[in-house]
Design a protein around this nucleic acid. Structure first.
Lengths: 235, 235
DNA sequence: AGGTATCCTTGATGCGAGTCAATTCCCGCT
DNA sequence: AGCGGGAATTGACTCGCATCAAGGATACCT
C-alpha cells in the first residue's frame, strides 16, 4: 500500500536537478520509497569507506562533504544545500563512500535505496541524459576544486566571498554587503585552513581596501579586485 | 554512404569501457562517424577554456590530462591509455574543457562529435546505466586525486613508486626493482613539483632505508613502508 | 553588573616546499 | 681520452601556512 507522502519531501525531490526531467509520477514513486529522518547539527551521515547502499536528499538544512586527512586535517569538497542529493555519486558508482558527510545545521533527510535511482533510469530513459550531463558537469567542477586548492588561502577566501556576493550580496552604503553564513571558525575549516590563518587573510583583504569587516558581516568595497584575486592572479 | 571503418578504430571503440554494454552495431555507427588522426608526441589535443564540441578515443598511444596553474605550474590529473576516451566528460557536460590534454607518445585518435554519444544514449538506454556508473566511478576517483594533492611530496613520490611496484615491479637481489618510466624532471612535473624538491624526496626515502637509487632504476627495499607513506601517514 | 564561555585576533616560531645559483654526474661525440 | 652539454644534485634563502601561546571581544546567563 502506498505510504503517505510528506509534501516537503515531495517538493525537495521535485526540486532535485539530478532528475529534473523526470515525470511527477516518477518523483512521487521516489518519494514513496523514501525513509525520512530528522537529525541534529553535526550528525555524521556517511563515513569514508562505508559501503554506499543508499543515498539521500536534503529536505531541509545543510551538510558538508569533506575528506579527513591522515593527520586529522579536513578538506571540504562541497557544501550541500536544501534540495540537493547526498552521496548519490557513490551510490551510482556502486562503490564505497569516498568522503565523509556531516550536517552543519539541523536537517531533514530523505534516504532512498540505490535501486530506486536505477529503476528511474529504466522507467524514463530521457532522465538518463540529464543525469549524464549533471554528473559530467560535477566532474568538470571538481577540476575547479583542485585548482582552488592550489591557490593560497587569501585567494580561496576571495573566491568564497565573491560567490557569496553573487548569491546573497545586498547593496549598502559603501558597497555590497554579505553575511558569511557561518562562524569564522567553520569557514576556516571549509576553506581547508585554520582560524588563525583565515583571520590573517581577512586582515589582508581589509588592509588592501577590498573589504570591511563587521563581525560576521562583510562589506565588499572592490568586487573586481575580489574576483581577480579569487581567480588566482597575484596582486 | 558508409565510410570504410578501420579495424583498429573499431577495436579501440569496442574496447571502451564507457559504452561497453552497447551493441556491435551501435559501436560500428560510432566508428563510422569518427575522424581519425595521427599526431606526434607532445601534441596538444585540447586546451583549457576551449568549447568541447567533440571528444576522442585513443586508438594508440598515451596522453596526459593536466591543469596549467596561473603561475605556469602543472598538475597532472590523469594519464590516458590506449582505448580510453579523451575529453568525453566535458563533451557530455556540454561545457568547455576544464583542463589541457597532451599526447606523451605518438598517437592515433578517433574524434567523435558530441552528438554521437547522445544518439547512442537514445538508441540504447541500457548503455545509460553503464555510463552513469562509469562517470560516477570517475567522480569517486577524483576525490582520491584531491587527497593525493593534499599530501607532501615525499608521500606523493612514495605513492607513485608503490603503483610502479604493483604494475612493473621485478624481484631482484635486494628487493623489488622498478623503472621510473620517465626522466626525473618529467616525473617532478607529473607529481606537481620541481626537480630539486623531487631530488630531496628521493634522498629522504633513501636515507630512511626504503629505497636504493640507481639512475632511473629504483630498488625498493621496504614495500610496506612505501605503501604506508604513500597513504599519507607520517613517519 | 559580574562572570563565564566561546569565538576571534595577534604575535612568535617552525616546517615544508619553491627559487636561485653553483656544482657534479652522466652520456654521447669527435 | 678528452670534451661539451643536459640532467641531476646540493646549499642558501624566502615565503606561506600551521602551530603554540597569549590576549581581547562578544554574547549569554543568573
Amino acid at each position: 500500500m502506498p505510504r503517505k507522502i510528506r509534501s516537503d519531501v515531495r517538493a525537495a525531490l521535485r526540486a532535485c536537478r539530478l532528475w529534473r526531467t523526470a515525470s511527477d509520477e516518477a518523483v512521487d514513486d521516489l518519494a514513496g520509497r523514501a525513509t525520512v529522518r530528522d537529525v541534529a547539527r553535526g550528525t555524521v551521515l556517511a563515513t569514508e569507506g562505508e559501503a554506499a547502499g543508499s543515498f539521500g536528499v536534503l529536505v531541509t538544512g545543510k551538510a558538508r562533504v569533506y575528506y579527513l586527512g591522515a593527520d586529522g586535517r579536513q578538506i571540504t569538497f562541497e557544501v550541500v544545500e536544501t534540495g540537493q542529493p547526498i552521496a548519490a555519486v557513490a551510490a551510482m558508482a556502486g562503490s564505497r563512500y569516498p568522503a565523509n558527510i556531516e550536517t552543519t545545521t539541523p536537517a531533514t533527510i530523505a534516504w532512498l535505496p540505490q535501486e530506486a535511482l536505477f529503476d528511474l533510469l529504466e522507467r524514463e530513459p530521457r532522465v538518463a541524459r540529464t543525469i549524464v550531463s549533471e554528473l559530467a558537469g560535477r566532474l568538470v567542477n571538481f577540476t575547479a576544486i583542485v585548482q582552488t586548492l592550489a591557490l593560497g588561502v587569501p585567494s580561496r577566501l576571495a573566491g568564497y566571498l565573491f560567490q557569496r556576493v553573487l548569491s546573497t550580496g545586498k547593496p549598502s552604503a559603501r558597497g555590497l554587503e554579505v553575511d558569511l553564513g557561518m562562524p569564522k571558525g567553520e569557514l576556516a575549516v571549509a576553506l581547508g585552513t585554520v582560524p588563525e590563518t583565515l583571520s590573517r587573510a581577512f586582515s589582508r583583504l581589509r588592509d588592501e581596501g577590498i573589504v570591511e569587516i563587521h563581525g560576521r558581516r562583510v562589506t565588499v568595497l572592490d568586487v573586481r579586485a575580489l574576483a581577480t584575486m579569487g581567480s588566482g592572479f597575484r596582486e
